[in-house]
Design a protein around this nucleic acid. Structure first.
Length: 269
DNA sequence: ATGACGGATCTAATCCGA
């Protein structure tokens, strides 16, 4: 008998402003676990009651005032195991917990990787230096550390494949798609033994985006997006993947986030 | 021109996102 389990990731760009959209999303799609990035509030201001009322009473929140911040909410019990301070900047960009899924415990990593600023040169741009150091530290993260199979999700702010951006050629020097970033992210994946679940399900030949800039007059018609949001897992869990859903329609909701939710559905045995 | 919006904050103009 298969045991369904699903996880979603969404850069919400202020959880307090968009709690209504989150409630709509949870009601319609019912993931077992939702990982949010850019909650933009301290833990005390996280709308915990709304999540509990929506059927998600288990929370691991790691926020700060105004910027960044990550939160993992779940239908099933979870234990927060770490909130690593990558690059020791004091930023809230990672929360790790173990979720009691119907198929057994799963380690969940929820990341918000620094955007990296405008200029892709660490010597003149401290934000890009920060981003590259953050990626460097992520290379130490193994998918099977500690014997519990793991899932890594989040806004990694890097679009690794040519089909992850609207124009590979025009974005080669644009932060998020430079070779030093995409090579770095590929190394994080290879060293940790991670599998890219989104690209396991949706062929690398297919154009695929999860983010569209607010600055575009008509984001849908222009369609100049990037695939910045990711779902990875250990190979053991990857073999149980049944479906990936990228909710492009959510970019067209009223007062939307510039990122859309991505859902991975599994059938555990 | 990729494009010139949208969030939080010491409510006004500034920093930040990618």
């Amino acid at each position: 008998m298969a045991k369904p389990f699903s996880i979603a990731t969404w850069n919400i760009n202020s959880v307090r402003l968009r709690i209504g959209l989150v409630e709509k999303f949870l009601a319609e799609h019912q993931p077992d676990v939702l990982c949010l990035q850019e909650i933009k509030c301290v833990n005390e201001l996280f709308p915990a009651d709304a999540f509990t009322a929506a059927g998600y009473p288990h929370h691991a929140v790691h926020g700060q005032k105004g910027y960044h911040g990550v939160a993992t909410v779940s239908k099933h019990p979870l234990t927060e195991t770490a909130s690593a301070d990558y690059v020791a900047m004091g930023d809230t960009r990672h929360v790790e917990c173990i979720v009691q899924s119907p198929g057994g415990p799963v380690r969940m990593h929820n990341f918000y990787v620094p955007a990296g600023g405008d200029v892709a040169d660490p010597a003149v741009n401290p934000k890009f230096d920060h981003k590259m150091k953050f990626i460097e530290e992520m290379k130490a993260l193994g998918c099977d550390d500690g014997d519990v199979p793991a899932i890594l999700v989040g806004d990694l702010n890097i679009a690794p494949l040519e089909t992850d951006v609207w124009s590979h050629k025009q974005l080669l020097k644009v932060v998020s798609h430079t070779p030093v970033e995409t090579d770095g992210l590929n190394e994080v994946m290879a060293k940790g033994g991670w599998t890219d679940l989104i690209r396991q399900h949706i062929p690398a030949e297919d154009i695929l985006f999860t983010w569209w800039s607010y600055r575009s007059k008509d984001w849908d018609a222009a369609d100049k997006g990037r695939r910045l949001d990711h779902i990875w897992s250990s190979p053991k869990l990857a073999s149980s993947l049944s479906k990936i859903e990228v909710l492009r329609e959510a970019r067209g909701w009223e007062k939307p986030s510039d990122h859309v939710p991505v859902i991975a559905r599994f059938d555990f045995t």
